[in-house]
Design a binder for these strands. Structure first.
Lengths: 371, 371
DNA sequence: GTGAAAGCGCTAACAC
DNA sequence: GTGTTAGCGCTTTCAC
């Protein structure tokens, strides 16, 4: 022990411990009254008679540390209850193991499925020792550059755009110019640093429509979400692809633009049925609208599937407990969550942006009846 | 400008800018090729011909800065795109504006309501400039002290226990001994540093049962959650309070312990009806179990509310779109989320732990029929 | 294989 | 009202 180290040693012992006694391999510490001081690398170093740098290397698993030393350090760190200070680490490394999760400020009811994603994203990130930090993005009054600032504040390693914004939201512009890793859902934004993962919406809508057609329905309504979302447009394409393939006329396959909410779906369905009373089936662009419609129609005596067949989209997990169990296009949210996190980690490790497109599956709930 | 500052000035200009030209009030910067260097306090200081500490004071709104200076600093910081480095700030302040949100690792289906809370917690925290960082807590193999380590790693200002753990989960012990601010939901853990917010479960269960009784039901089943949760026990007390008050016998008011999942509710309901065929109403301790039961019973010809009245608990927002709209005890999740965040901030600002108990409300969905 | 020392960007105590 | 200085706890050269 150098004299300088010894000198500091006394000082620090006074600061954090009254006594430090090694006896029978058992380390006893007596923290001062009041708050318990946090143990730093320095404390571990002092107890091991080693320098801070050696302790750091030992703890980080670096080369150039004698095995015996490493074991000694590990034991001391454990005994003292050492917890690294990530702020210090991040300051010097100029990066953090933090991932920004970006939510729209007001999309709760409209996008319940996203909250099915979060636990999976978080777990996947955690398994690589990354943590998720949540930010809220304004749908309106967002100004260019906010995204960059968010990333810079805490030197985030990257971000995941969990909400879907309207296609002309400026955040997509920020995303295109940004050189931090990012993953977006249900958007086709793709750059060197930005991957995207989405399901084949066109295919999903086609599958739903096709299922209704295969069940014998020839007059089918489509209640879509707002036109300003990419996904709404793609779902319309899929719907049209299926109806044209089956040579259904546009008159027999009316389309309504709604808003992805339960009430919106309900209102659109009533309007649709009022204007097109011969309709035998409706395809809703999400489960919430389907549920809103079914429950309200039932009260007016229109029963699903007896009088009207209904299929939704999203495959919300509550759908299978719906009455009747709601036919739907199932998006595998756990898979998307896990994949999104993995794609981001890939980008962080130097990978290039890429696109993953999953194919949704069909859940044949009893809300659709063959005719 | 002191000579020392001037010296550093040259160095830094070389590092981050090729030219820095003020002309017509417009600041033009030419970052070097490749990555754009981040702007630090030092850069702002140099451009203003001020010391770092003055710039820091100006930016932090401290006293002792001439107004003209402050304006100059603010403008320069803005023009240069200065973003503070929070890791540095946290390192020196020994605390962060970070709140840990603790989720159980596997409670997704069982607790969908918690994901109704998160957006509100996050928004409230954000309005005080705090951020939420998500941690997953293991239901099993959790070892004492993990919570403390989580708080210490990043010098979190506090944490919110968003999931409800079984009453004997060791995290509650950690919580009791911890001296960091914490807020727990649906638990009565209360210390100097730990507040709790919950709804009056006894009252909620009483209200649900009482509603059934008021509708004329005299033989009422109760499908509860697992006994290991505090809330299950309290809900049972409320149920019993109502049945005893109405002088219903224990035979006419059978209780089943289930698991808060859709399938569990379904199975328990079938068992309950099989053993007690004269039952006219069932109170489920959460909406998910109620939905699972209703949808499955409907397929067997047992219709709600025609043949059986059902009331749930939680007031999930999808409940009002259920078929029939599900009567339930509504827990005001937005209020709880906002309140939880506010209570935590109170603790952080030196307040003492306290208890808030909200009274739930009754949603009279059509799933209950008077007889 | 280990130690000394510099410095990440910031705050705060102390000069002046 | 402003500048100087000493760290916060850590990683990372560079010596030895």
């Amino acid at each position: 022990m150098t004299s300088k180290l010894r000198e500091r040693s006394r000082k620090i012992h006074c600061k954090k411990f009254t006594f430090v006694i090694y006896s029978n391999q058992k380390l006893q510490t007596f923290p001062k009254l009041g708050e318990i001081m946090k143990i730093s690398l320095k404390d571990v170093a002092l107890h091991c008679n080693l320098s801070i740098s050696t302790v750091s290397r030992a703890l980080n698993g670096d080369y150039g540390v004698k095995n015996k030393t490493r074991v000694q350090v590990l034991e001391a760190a454990n005994a003292l209850g050492y917890v690294p200070n990530l702020a210090a680490k991040e300051l010097v490394r100029q990066k953090s193991e933090l991932i920004g999760i970006l939510l729209e400020d007001s999309d709760f009811e409209a996008r319940p499925a996203f909250f099915e994603l979060l636990p999976y994203i978080n777990k996947t990130l955690a398994s690589y020792n990354y943590r998720a930090i949540i930010y809220t993005i304004r749908s309106h009054n967002y100004s260019r550059g906010e995204l960059n600032d968010i990333l810079n504040f805490r030197n985030l390693s990257g971000c995941i755009l969990l909400s879907v914004f309207r296609a002309d939201h400026p955040i997509y512009e920020d995303l295109k110019e940004m050189n931090h890793p990012a993953v977006v859902l249900e958007s086709s934004t793709l750059t060197r640093f930005c991957s995207n993962i989405n399901t084949d919406e066109n295919m999903g809508a086609y599958m739903a429509t096709r299922y209704l057609i295969d069940c014998g329905h020839r007059r089918i309504g489509f209640v879509n979400g707002p036109e300003c979302f990419e996904i709404s447009r793609e779902r319309l394409e899929g719907f049209r692809r299926a109806t044209e393939e089956a040579h259904l006329t546009v008159e027999d396959t009316p389309v309504f633009w709604s808003d992805y909410t339960g009430n919106g779906g309900n209102e659109s369905a009533h309007q649709l049925l009022h204007l097109n009373p011969t309709i035998t089936a409706i395809f809703f662009a999400n489960d919430l609208m389907a549920m809103g419609a079914i429950s309200s129609l039932a009260e007016k005596g229109v029963l699903v599937p007896e009088h009207l067949s209904v299929i939704g989209y999203d495959g919300l997990f509550v759908g299978k407990y719906y009455n009747p169990p709601l036919a739907s296009i199932v998006i595998d949210n756990p898979a998307i969550g896990i994949k999104a996190a993995e794609m981001l980690l890939e980008l962080i490790n130097g990978g290039s942006g890429k696109t993953i497109r999953l194919t949704p599956s069909l859940f044949k709930g009893n809300s659709v009846k063959p005719i």
